[in-house]
């Protein structure tokens, strides 16, 4: 089934407590060499049938208005799932 992938990240200047917690846990578990972690989220929007420009546009709107909180998050990408397109 065709999918649209939406990726959202906390804005770079905003504190990311999850990322911070992971960053401090990494060396405790022996994973060294990482100086920082930021954690975002990925959405997979399934579509019945073909992904038209219209549906993609609707996904973009949903991404900025509903899937992300524009005050503290950025939408990084809204794209058609490549694996499926192949």
């Amino acid at each position: 089934m065709p999918r649209i992938i939406v990726e959202v990240m906390p804005k770079p200047e905003i504190l990311d407590p999850q990322g911070k917690a992971i960053a401090s846990a990494l060396p405790h578990l022996g994973f060294t060499g990482f100086s920082g972690v930021r954690q975002g989220k990925r959405f997979e929007l399934a579509v019945d049938g073909e992904i038209t420009d219209e549906i993609l546009e609707s996904a973009r709107t949903a991404a900025t208005e509903m899937l992300s909180n524009p005050v503290i998050e950025d939408v990084i990408s809204v794209r058609v799932d490549d694996e499926d397109a192949a």
Partner: peptide
């Protein structure tokens, strides 16, 4: 500069 600074803060209660 890349972005305008946000006016909101994010808290971390565990910290």
């Amino acid at each position: 500069k890349p972005s305008k600074r946000p006016a909101v803060q994010v808290g971390d209660p565990f910290a």
